[in-house]
Amino acid sequence: MTTENLVYERPEAFTEMPTHYCPGCTHGVAHRLVAEVLDEMGIVDKTIGVAPVGCAVFAYNYFATDFVEAPHGRAPAMATGVKRVLPDRVVFTYQGDGDLASIGMGEIVHAAARGENITVIFINNANYGMTGGQMAPTTLPGMKTSSSQSGRDVETQGYPIKVSEMLSTLEGVGYCVRRSLHDPKNIRLAKKAIRAAFETQVRGLGFSMVELLSTCPTNWGITPVNSLKFVEEHMVPAYPLGDYKVSDAVKQIKI
């Protein structure tokens, strides 16, 4: 088995630790894409990640980069501090929807408004995965969760928050897109977007965020394969994929 034969292997930006994620959870895919991008850009040694509270709370065990753990929702605030003190490092946060879109909504909006030069990987799986699948701000109308057992009622619980659309209105944002992880084609597009987001930061072009539609097979109560179908049939129509803001300077980047 020579390296000549090798087509794909586990990224070097990963540690040897197996993840604690449930089988089939696309958190692992998102982790892998970030690790592959760090490998390709050769920035593993100067990257600092900020882990959230949520399923990805143990992300620091899986990446071979430096990592800090932020209080719930405060990853963008902590990343702001890290980046301002160490401007030559690449700083990214990895947050779920319960973390970013709920308790951390203030932090993410103001970090984006200030145009902090950080990269945010936002995992949208429409519920609070770690605590048992409660309703999140991103839960779809009518979707059953453990805290909305007859389905999310928009009369009393409101409509889902579309974070990418909202942040794209802010001046400080350089790159803000939504991608999905439900099939190989979209996974490849997601990886390109993550690369572009990190390139945005390396060139100092402002705040960058990639929202990734993700699965939660355990809390949705369906198999991993059916979870991907659920994303394709229900989440993609509710959260349209696309580039919500790509600043002119970011468009010039040639990878």
């Binding site: 090798l6 292997e9 586990r10 994620y21 089939g24 692992g28 892998r32 099939d183």
Partner: peptide, 19 residues
């Protein structure tokens, strides 16, 4: 083709191809 490795959430698959 490495599609399996692209969708694998745990980076468990190493892919080789005859040269």
């Amino acid at each position: 083709c490495a599609i399996c490795a692209v969708v694998c959430p745990d980076a468990a698959i190493t892919v080789y191809r005859e040269v």
